[in-house]
């Protein structure tokens, strides 16, 4: 691939752009990702003859990418906060004395977990106890996110059955 003048500008400015981006997002791994994105975007610009100042354009592109990253991060945080409220707000419709699980029930749940396939149990515990996301579990174990969902869903179903049978 022939390097366009735009990409040449970007390459020669890279150390400076990287420092600026790192300063903006406060994380060098994230800055690296943003620079990568910027590079891809710049390489898709077809008519770089139309651009007056290639250096300024490249800098602007990196800045926009950093801002885009923040917006995305902010949306992510908003969604996470809403989900958190949904999952952890108190449950008014259910009487308080039942919100704690008795030891007998807990023992039964532990026993049922022990009976689950090792991989399902491990994935469930990673998610429920250690709070690891499906994506991260998928990455660590080397399976798809759908498979992670399936394993956890299966354990939840088994435990819910147990709860309903003991009620």
């Amino acid at each position: 691939m022939e390097l366009t003048r735009l990409l040449q500008s970007f390459a020669s400015l890279r150390p400076r752009i990287e420092a600026l981006t790192r300063g903006r997002v406060g994380c060098s791994a994230t800055a690296e990702d943003i620079l990568q994105d910027t590079w891809v975007r710049l390489s898709n610009v077809r008519h770089d003859d139309a651009i007056d100042n290639h250096a300024a354009f490249a800098m602007r592109a990196a800045k926009n990418a950093a801002i885009g990253h923040f917006r995305k991060q902010q949306r992510r945080n908003e969604i996470d906060a809403e989900v958190n409220d949904l999952l952890w707000q108190s449950v008014d419709e259910i009487s308080p004395e039942r919100i704690v699980m008795g030891r007998d029930m807990l023992r039964a749940v532990d026993a049922a977990l022990q009976d689950m396939p090792e991989r399902s149990r491990r994935i469930f515990l990673m998610n429920r106890i250690n709070g690891v996301s499906h994506r991260e579990i998928a990455r660590q174990i080397g399976i798809s996110e759908e498979a992670v969902y399936y394993h956890i869903r299966r354990v939840v179903e088994r435990l819910a059955e147990l709860r309903d049978s003991q009620a």
Binding site: L87, W88, V91, I94, Q114
Partner: peptide, 14 residues
């Protein structure tokens, strides 16, 4: 189901 999920915090992680 949410309440049950909350309660599962006490399970033994082995």
């Amino acid at each position: 189901e949410k309440q049950f999920w909350q309660l599962l915090q006490g399970v033994n992680d082995g």
